[in-house]
Simulated scan of single mutants.
Amino acid sequence: MFPEAEKVQKKTSCEHHQDCMKIIQLILDGQATDDQITHFKSNVDKCLPCEKGYELEKCIKETMQLRLEKKCVPTSLLDCIKRKIQEL
């Protein structure tokens, strides 16, 4: 018989959880840098809160994409919103 594979003990708390969640959002939105993705991938297997946070955020995003109906927005409304944003 083969010896049992070593199980990696995951951290149960994350001292950088807010920063990790920001990176998770960037990854899911397709805006993360290669370095951020590499760093996240190397650490997610070691940190239970980050793993669970990633799975939850991914699930929420996928659900919203499936459930929300996409509708065309009038150009005049888009222009109005853009002007208001620029005024901020």
Rank of each mutant, 00 (worst) to 15 (best):
C59R: 13
Q25T: 07
G53D: 06
D45W: 01
D29L: 12
E69A: 09
T75I: 13
C50N: 05
T63H: 05
Q18H: 05
K7R: 13
H39M: 08
P74Y: 04
K71E: 12
G53A: 13
E55R: 13
E87P: 01
H16N: 12
K82C: 03
E15N: 11
C20Q: 06
G53P: 02
K70Y: 04
Q18D: 12
K46P: 00
P3H: 06
I23N: 03
I81A: 12
Q9C: 04
S42N: 11
K11P: 01
C50L: 04
V44N: 02
K52I: 13
E6S: 10
K10A: 11
R67I: 09
C80I: 03
R67E: 14
K71P: 02
C80L: 13
F2Y: 07
K10N: 04
L48N: 10
G30R: 07
R83E: 15
L28M: 01
K7A: 14
V44L: 02
V8Y: 03
D45G: 15
I23L: 03
Q65R: 10
C47T: 05
T12Y: 06
P3Y: 05
K7I: 14
I85S: 06
P3K: 12
L68K: 10
L56M: 09
E87T: 11
T75A: 12
R67C: 12
D19Q: 14
D19C: 02
K58D: 07
E57C: 03
E51D: 12
D35T: 11
M21D: 04
Q31W: 01
P3I: 08
D29V: 04
S13L: 04
L28T: 01
C59L: 08
V8M: 09
E6M: 10
C47L: 04
I81D: 03
Q25I: 04
F2P: 14
D34H: 05
Q9S: 10
V8T: 15
C47E: 03
M1T: 10
K82H: 07
M21L: 10
A5K: 14
K10Y: 02
I60F: 07
A32T: 07
I81L: 13
K22W: 03
K82T: 09
